[in-house]
Design a binder for these strands. Structure first.
Lengths: 342, 342
DNA sequence: CTGAAAGCGCTTACAG
DNA sequence: CTGAAAGCGCTTACAG
């Protein structure tokens, strides 16, 4: 009878505490005590249990444990693309903090698709993650309201949430851009072009704002012909540069709105004579090894991830204060490309 | 009585199917049917259930579902460091394939620490992931034998498992290096140095083997003075280059064992006069924009991740064949740095 | 078309 | 020091 279903799972399933209990000839609760290192078990009994555990290859099923206890000890991370160095640094920082809180991380890439963001986020919620860190693709997050009302903590990074009140950890996009553009102004440039990303992206809008502010603060007028806002693809960049650097009043300097734009611009400039000054938002590896080195406004992906994760665990620890918005400052790194005169 | 614990969770917990059933005045099973889109529910009844779901903010608890059904629809990914572009590309590819199989991904970085690798892997097993994709940090994976015996599928990537038979998806490390070194030989170099990584890393050993084979195939003797195997840190690289490029018989060409070595070498070469030829294993962003462009032996991180994940899901689908070892070929990309004569 | 009962593998009171 | 009973939130047979 007992023998029929004893032994470490004839068919498929894994041995359970019940199997271990039978094999060791003790009660289920005693096995639980040994597995969880609870005190008050006779050493000889514990020994028998350990033997059974090894023999059967038992490993506690944390899913069952989680269901009973209620805390899943896991968080979800939704970002645009883990393969992007900016986000992979951020991911690593989140992992690091989660580890310090004995929490596991579910991760997924939204590919800048709002539906995919929602799908991933809600899948994580169905798995009952305790918290979420989201780099939003969409601008409407009302779908998260019921989850947050039910106790799921959420921190948005890089871009704020839309339609709900939630914590956000952002870079100082406008301020950083202002500093970068001022740097170009100080070097004598008056025709400075701004090459941004899609105008619906929050960071792109903010950086454009910073550009405008710097130009206007210098007593100049913002020339719409000097502003280009679109996703950085080679062909589009080429045409934009043709326009910006040609004509009778060409731009003498470029501000690139993110590292993808910067790199696309660099690839295109290689084929041209005469280099405009260049400052890019976002640092990137090897920027210092190019000639000239590329001057950038560096943000801090590790800091963004760490700050967001720490804020999340603070919320999970009971912090019920109002939604916070934290802005991390940026840093101008002059390397050569931004220090040339018109 | 019933009212006491009805309503959508007064205290903390989330509403359950039971709550929805009570609120809608139907049976539990009917709620389950509606939630899971099972056919055969009276439209009017389904409507009532939907209303209750929205009102209470119900979302199915997938952890409970998983416990009952037995399939967790999740896999674990353990790698060295998500922040490394090589691994973040691989991660993205795994995510992509997992998504196609409706599976979620737990991810963690081992930091090249065998204990951390084991800890992460077993934590994933305790969460009952169905499969594992592991970039091993250690060389002993017997700890996984009970898990694999219990049905957990495992595929190793970039480096093979140690102590157990398991699927492995690798780059053609030796072959790729051979091709790179032969390229330098064809350009007339006879004193070619090899700068590898720590000799205990599988890929470093394999690439060194390829180097040796190429040198010997050319009828030359491997000069131990031309081989340097250590983690790529600036100071160590500087000293190695002093030694390799100085003296009376300096190396005229360098083969760098991975992209971190390549970049460290480039940073150091900037400060020196006279550039040796250079070929590096691993491609990296902007390699083409440096001057000269850096010739590399490119491996395919996306391909490694995709292949490993596809193999894993093949196993999960029932493939019980013997452990496989798949080698992905590499590709030499000449860009300038490797095409200069002594 | 609908629902009551049993059970997934644990932990939580509770009683010896 | 030890263990039997109940329950976490679902799904799986099974019976109306």
């Amino acid at each position: 009878m007992a023998g029929m279903q004893a032994g470490g799972s004839g068919a498929r399933g894994r041995p359970t505490m019940k199997d271990v209990a039978e094999s060791a000839g003790v009660g289920l609760k005693t096995v639980s005590r040994v597995v969880n290192g609870e005190p008050g078990v006779n050493p000889a009994t514990a020994e028998k249990v350990q033997t059974a555990i090894s023999k059967l290859g038992f490993r506690r099923n944390d899913s069952a444990r989680i269901l009973r206890r209620g805390n899943t000890a896991s968080i979800g991370l939704v970002l645009e693309d883990v393969a992007d160095p900016f986000y992979s640094g951020l991911t690593r920082a989140v992992e690091e903090v989660a580890r310090g809180h004995d929490s596991l991380v579910f991760a997924g890439s939204s590919d800048e698709d709002p539906d995919r963001e929602r799908e991933l986020t809600l899948a994580f919620c169905a798995r009952r993650v305790e918290g979420l860190i989201v780099v939003p693709a969409g601008d409407d997050h009302e779908y998260l309201a019921p989850e947050m009302a039910a106790g799921v903590a959420a921190v948005f990074v890089d871009r704020p949430a839309g339609g709900i009140k939630a914590d956000a950890v952002l870079a100082d996009n406008a301020g950083g851009t202002r500093e970068g553009v001022e740097h170009l102004l100080h070097h004598g440039h008056r025709r400075i072009a701004f090459l941004g990303d899609s105008p619906q992206i929050f960071t792109a809008k903010e950086r454009l704002r910073g550009y405008r502010e710097a130009i206007e603060a210098a007593g100049l007028a913002v020339d719409a012909d000097l502003v280009a806002m679109f996703p950085p693809r080679a062909e589009a960049i080429r045409q934009a540069l043709d326009r910006l650097l040609g004509g009778d009043r060409p731009a003498t300097a470029l501000f690139a709105g993110n590292s993808r734009v910067t790199v696309a611009v660099l690839r295109e400039l290689v084929h041209r004579r005469g280099r405009p000054a260049l400052v890019g938002f976002d640092d990137f590896e090897l920027a210092d090894l190019l000639s000239p080195g590329v001057t950038v406004v560096a943000q801090d992906p590790i800091g963004l991830g760490r700050t967001a994760a720490e804020l999340l665990f603070q919320r999970l620890a009971g912090d019920r204060g109002p939604a916070r918005r934290i802005e991390l400052s940026t840093r101008l790194i002059p390397r050569g490309s931004g220090e040339v005169s018109p």
